[in-house]
Write a protein that binds this DNA or RNA. Structure first.
Length: 698
DNA sequence: ACATTGAGCGCCCTCTGCTGGGGTGGC
DNA sequence: AGCCACCCCAGCAGAGGGCGCTCAATGT
């Protein structure tokens, strides 16, 4: 016979298939390739194996029948001539490595079989073929009872002899009774003598056949005593009882609190810990932890949609999708009510998302209009309703009010000369996107076909003049206002819009503009902006001479100053409001023949004008009541606020001289925003070259 | 020979959660 | 008109429950 004998590593916990192992009790065994259950199935049957020596060299030695094959610790195979009907396998501990004890497997003829069977204490690791029926060439077939061998193995060190047992030569089955082994050997046989009369399928045992036949006949003799369930086999019944009634789950996960009725379920569960995904999709990178998921996944590639709605014919890849879909037809759609508001959702997950978005918040939300705080977006929304229609967003520079923050932001551009929408074809720029769009269409788009003028449907009840837009009519109605209050408001607004502020640095989104006496806009906290308010002292200093002042400073987190505002409304000696013009740097520079460098804000007038605390803001601010650059003016220490900063002389009585040129420039700068508010006039205005006389605007 | 027990594999189903697209209404 | 929030829906995957079926092991 051809025999490959090996040596293995003693005490090895794992190892290659075919290695010789010695367990803690000193038993030798060989792990076979057929092992599936993760444990070590002991086999005394040596067919092939790999020699693993102490130095981990893999050595294989083959011996012919009747030979003695000896592997030394170094992996050298030593074959010696031998004879006899039996083979004795001897495992000899080597003295190779100190850390790992290697054993040498010696295969040698055994002429004294009988003695070995009796248990030779001096024999080490014996393969003992008790029946002497040597069928070396047919070992692979493994279908006969006579393949069974009785083997006795004992290591030399312990000088132990295992009591005689009837062992299966194909697996590690042992039995004290030979007839039991004989019965066992049928399991290695592929013979299926018991045939089903229905499907002709064969079974190894009659019991198996009977169970199978029951599946044909539907016979389910095993009835659950707790419910009406019946099962084909008793095993099914037991499992059913565990699943449904006793909840007994003997298989427990060592890593979590999961437990299962079946071991296979625990194994499946363990894959969720290990991440093992043995089932690879052949079409993509997806791999599944079990066959079902892979099968389900494959429908993506095949396009198979096995679940069809019997009402509308819609098809789905998963049964649950169909189930959910059916509820649309049946009207049995579940309704998930939010406990915190009247909102309902059709699905649990949607409700969860709703709660997440509307009812949970990391921090309170502050109302920009009144400053109240609310724990979540929902309560904030409810609260916001109470402000509906209110024009809470008031411009600090003019009487403008708006119901929305966005509108105020847009309006603020009027005061800052910001025209962020620049025409790419000429040097025109605009404050509003739509204005730029219209400009481009009118002047740079040869294909533009202006829309037909709409009918003037809004007619004035007083004079009959018609307007295309309601807003224009409303504005017009101010003319007929008997108390002139509307007209006054219009005038005030128009004048207020003339208030201009220049800024040195680029202005960040205007929503960050905030009057000092307003609450910080908490809604925008997350945008990395930090409000820098003037201290109370600065504010107080800024409120002198009967002038109403509001100052705004916004500082980014980078420390750069972005916006500084100072607003002054004055009354003249008669108590009437005085027009205040705020002059842009450019105008001032032009008038003075010098640039206004270093001057961040220049107001055109103001007897009690104050400078903003430059030390705090890091910004130079001064008033330009005469149109001269601040840096050309003499110091006016102690006057007004912020005495450290250059001051402009003020006129006696609090009147300020308004720089005509600056006002003109300011007016011109405001033309666009005023003119464009009336679209029907805007077109004319644009058609006329985009210029209007400032005097017309005033 | 028969009955019992239980492991093992496979299949299907359900529940759950996430994601993205589309529709809609408010601003 | 455009943007945005919200809702609805379908698609897909993770995880687990339950059962059908076969067969080995074991006891009587």
């Amino acid at each position: 016979m051809a025999l490959t004998a090996l040596c293995g590593v003693a005490g090895s916990a794992g190892g290659e298939v075919g290695q010789v192992y010695v367990d803690q009790s000193g038993q030798y065994f060989i792990r076979e390739a057929t092992e599936e259950d993760g444990g070590l199935r002991r086999s005394k049957r040596v067919r092939t194996a790999t020699a693993v020596t102490a130095d981990a060299a893999m050595v294989q030695a083959s011996g012919e029948a009747g030979q003695t094959v000896q592997l030394a610790a170094g992996g050298q195979a030593v074959a010696a001539a031998a004879g006899g009907a039996y083979q004795t396998v001897t495992l000899v501990p080597s003295d190779g490595n100190s850390d790992e004890v290697s054993y040498v497997l010696i295969v040698q003829p055994d002429a004294e079989e009988g003695q070995k069977q009796e248990g030779d204490d001096q024999t080490i690791g014996v393969y003992d073929f008790d029946d002497g029926d040597e069928q070396p060439e047919e070992e692979e077939s493994g279908e006969e009872d006579d393949k069974a061998r009785v083997t006795r193995i004992a290591p030399r060190k312990s000088s132990q002899t295992v009591s005689q047992a009837h062992m299966c030569s194909y697996c590690n089955y042992t039995s004290p009774k030979r007839y039991l082994l004989s019965r066992h050997m049928k399991s290695h046989s592929e013979e299926r003598p018991h045939k089903c009369s229905v499907c002709e399928r064969g079974f190894k045992t009659l019991a198996s056949l009977q169970n199978h036949v029951n599946t044909h006949t539907g016979t389910k003799p095993h009835c659950c005593k707790f419910c009406d369930a019946n099962f084909t086999t008793s095993g099914e019944l037991v499992r059913h009882v565990r699943y449904i009634h006793t909840k007994e789950k003997p298989h427990t996960c060592p890593e979590c609190d999961y437990s299962s009725v079946e071991l296979s379920k625990l194994r499946r569960h363990m894959r969720s810990h290990t991440g093992e995904r043995p089932y690879q999709c052949p079409h993509c990178t997806y791999a599944s932890p079990d066959t079902f998921k892979l099968k389900r996944h494959l429908r993506i590639h095949t396009g198979e949609k096995p679940y069809e709605c019997d009402i509308c014919g819609s098809r789905f890849t998963q049964s649950n999708s169909l189930k959910a879909h059916r509820q649309i037809h049946s009207g049995e759609k579940p309704v998930y009510h939010c406990e915190l508001c009247p909102t309902t959702c059709g699905r649990k997950t949607d409700l969860r998302i709703h709660v997440q978005k509307l009812h949970t918040s990391d921090r309170p939300i502050k109302c920009k209009r009144c400053g109240k705080s609310f724990p979540d977006r929902y309560s904030f929304k409810l609260h916001s309703k109470t402000h509906e229609g209110e024009k809470c967003f008031k411009c600090d520079l003019c009487p403008y009010m708006s119901t929305s923050q966005r509108h105020l932001e847009s309006h603020m551009l009027v005061h800052t000369d910001q025209k962020p929408f620049v025409c790419q074809h000429c040097d025109q720029s605009f404050r509003q996107k739509q204005l730029l769009k219209r400009h481009v269409n009118l002047y740079h788009n040869p294909n533009y076909i202006p829309p037909q003028p709409r009918e003037k449907t809004h007619e004035c009840p007083e004079c009959g003049r018609a307007f295309r837009h309601k807003g224009n009519l409303i504005r017009h109605l101010a003319i007929h206002d008997p108390e002139a209050s509307a007209a006054e408001k219009q005038l005030a607004l128009k004048l207020g819009r003339e208030t201009k502020v220049t800024v040195r640095a680029a202005i960040q989104p205007l929503r960050h503009w905030t009057a000092l006496d307003q609450q910080p806009m908490e809604m925008y906290e997350d945008e990395g902006e930090e409000e820098v308010g003037l201290g109370g002292e600065a504010q107080q200093q800024g409120r002198g001479g009967g002038a109403e002042q509001k100052m705004v400073a916004v500082q980014g987190q980078d420390g750069q100053q972005y916006v500084v505002l100072e607003v002054i409304h004055l009354q003249d000696a008669n108590g009437e409001e005085q027009t205040v013009a705020v002059v842009p740097d450019s105008a001032l520079s032009q008038a003075a023949g010098a640039g206004g460098s270093g001057i961040d804000m220049q107001l055109a007038a103001g007897p009690a004008a104050s400078s903003i605390d430059a030390a705090q803001l890091g910004t130079d601010v001064s008033l330009a009541d005469d149109g001269l650059p601040a840096d050309l003016l003499p110091q006016a220490a102690g006057e007004g606020a912020g005495g450290e900063q250059p001051r402009r002389p003020t006129t006696p009585g609090g009147r300020r001289r308004v720089d005509d040129q600056a006002v003109q420039k300011s007016k011109q700068d405001m033309q666009n925003c005023f003119g464009f508010d009336d679209d029907e006039e805007d077109v004319d205005f644009l058609a006329a070259g985009g210029k209007k006389e400032a005097v017309e605007m005033m």
